[in-house]
Structure formats: structure tokens, C-alpha cells
């Protein structure tokens, strides 16, 4: 099926199978491998992208559902948002960067507890979350 959308500001069009997820389109077809796949059922957050400005799971979105949409991936966001050294293996990084970008886009400053609760939809197996939260708090300041 024919699909047209923009990815990180660049228009893309092509033929896709309806069952292709947005995550697989990004990773396998466009080689935008910054978006990671952990659980593939919505729980870990590693695959989070911005879909028309809202954070969404690319593993739980069919590519064809994104027809006409503007998709932003981690590759399209400033890496200063959460620097690499807030992470260890980095597998979860894309999800945190994109989720934090979505949260902070409303311009409201958040406290540590609120941020921790809002970022609870992203799993990190390495860091214990502290350095990630610190980095977002620093970025806000």
C-alpha cells in the first residue's frame, strides 16, 4: 500500500505492507536505527517517537496509520537533551530523549517526583534512573 509521511522534516513515500509497524519502517527500510525495539508490545518505551508532536510507541503504530503524519525520531532531536553519559549501555536512550522532548515541549518546569512518574513508561535496565532524571532536571534549569 502507498504511504506518504515526513520523517525528521524530510518527505518520504513508498510502498509498504499494512502489517509493517512504524518501528520497522524506520529501522529496516530507512535505516534510522536510533529508535530501538525492546519488548514490541508497548511496555519498555525504547521505540518512542514523536507522531505529529505527541510521543507514541512506534512498535504499536502501523506505518499506514501514520499516513500524512510528521514523525520525529531521536535522530531529529538535539542530543544535548540527555547527554550520552547519563546512560550505560544506551539501549533505552532514544525512548527517554523522545519522551523528555515531548514532556518539556509544554514549557512547564517539573520537579523530580513528577518527572520520575511521567517517565515511568520507559524502562532502563542499567542506570537505576538517577542519572537520567538528573540530566533532564539539568536541561530544564
Amino acid at each position: 500500500m502507498r504511504l506518504e509521511l515526513t520523517i525528521n522534516g524530510i518527505p518520504w513515500q513508498g510502498e509498504v505492507e499494512p502489517r509493517l509497524t512504524l518501528a520497522d519502517l524506520l529501522r529496516d527500510r530507512l535505516r534510522l536505527t536510533g529508535t530501538h525495539l525492546g519488548c514490541e508490545h508497548g511496555v519498555c518505551g525504547a521505540c518512542t517517537v514523536l507522531l505529529d508532536g505527541e510521543a507514541a510507541r512506534s512498535c504499536l503504530t502501523l506505518a499506514v496509520q501514520a499516513e500524512g503524519a510528521a514523525v520525529i525520531t531521536v535522530e531529529g532531536l538535539p542530543s544535548s537533551l540527555i547527554p550520552e553519559n547519563a546512560f550505560q549501555c544506551g539501549f533505552c536512550r532514544a525512548g527517554f530523549v523522545v519522551s523528555a522532548a515531548a514532556l518539556l515541549s509544554d514549557g512547564r518546569r517539573r520537579g523530580r517526583q513528577e518527572l520520575a512518574e511521567e517517565l515511568a513508561g520507559n524502562i532502563c535496565r542499567c542506570t537505576g534512573y538517577r542519572p537520567i532524571l538528573e540530566a533532564v532536571l539539568r536541561y530544564q534549569a
Partner: peptide, 9 residues
Amino acid sequence: VGHFQIRSR
């Protein structure tokens, strides 16, 4: 009702 990345969809 799910995390905010779930509630967006």
C-alpha cells in the same frame, strides 16, 4: 490509563 505515550494513541 497507561503511560502518556500510550494515552496519545
